[in-house]
Simulated assay, not measured.
Amino acid sequence: MRNRLATAAALSTALFGAGALLGAPAADAGDAVAAVPAAHAVPAAPAAGARPAADTTHFDVTLGNTYTRGTLTWSNRSFHLVGEHKSVSATSCRGTTAFAVKADNHDAASASSKNNVCGKSDAFDFWLTVDVAGIDVVRVCLDNGATTPPLTYLKCVRYSRP
């Protein structure tokens, strides 16, 4: 009986931490203690409200023959946008802007591509960093590619976290 209690205490300590099995005697140095196979170990529970490390969403904001398309990668407090934008006229440029939208429908932060295009298409890659957690909506806009403010947002589409 003493061996079974010692084994139970050791198993309980391995799985649940010290003191989890109350009333069991401590194992003596000479008692046999069975190892807990990894297959029977209890995995750690995820933190409350935890999300997968990185969800992705494909976005496409098209206006006539111009567009911004790509992938939005969701992280806890930042968003990575990688894609391509296109302009068909050398005098009508295009760029991409993204806004992190809070639950109250107000913008928390925004970021824009640095390489606007005029009469061609080109790749972009930029980050949108937010000072608050829990952003579940990002608005991606095709803009006029202005190099000085203000930008004109020609068309925007909202994307929700998957």
Score class of each variant (00 low, 15 high):
G49V: 07
Y67F: 11
G49W: 08
A133L: 05
T66I: 11
H80M: 01
D31P: 04
T7Y: 11
L21A: 13
A6I: 05
L11I: 14
C156D: 01
P149T: 08
A45H: 02
T96G: 02
I135E: 03
A50T: 04
G95Q: 02
T62G: 10
G83E: 00
S89V: 07
I135C: 08
A45P: 08
R77N: 14
A98W: 00
A9W: 03
L15Q: 04
N65V: 04
T68R: 03
A32H: 15
S78G: 11
G49F: 02
R139V: 10
A50L: 02
A26I: 10
V157H: 05
A27R: 10
A41S: 14
A41M: 14
A98S: 00
L128K: 01
S75M: 12
H85S: 09
L154G: 02
S110N: 10
D104G: 01
S121H: 08
N3P: 14
C156G: 01
S160R: 11
A27C: 07
K120R: 13
N144V: 03
A44L: 10
A48L: 06
G95W: 06
A100I: 01
R69H: 08
R158Q: 14
F124L: 01
T96C: 03
R2Y: 12
A8C: 05
K114R: 11
P43E: 06
N115V: 08
K86H: 12
F16K: 09
Y67A: 04
P37M: 07
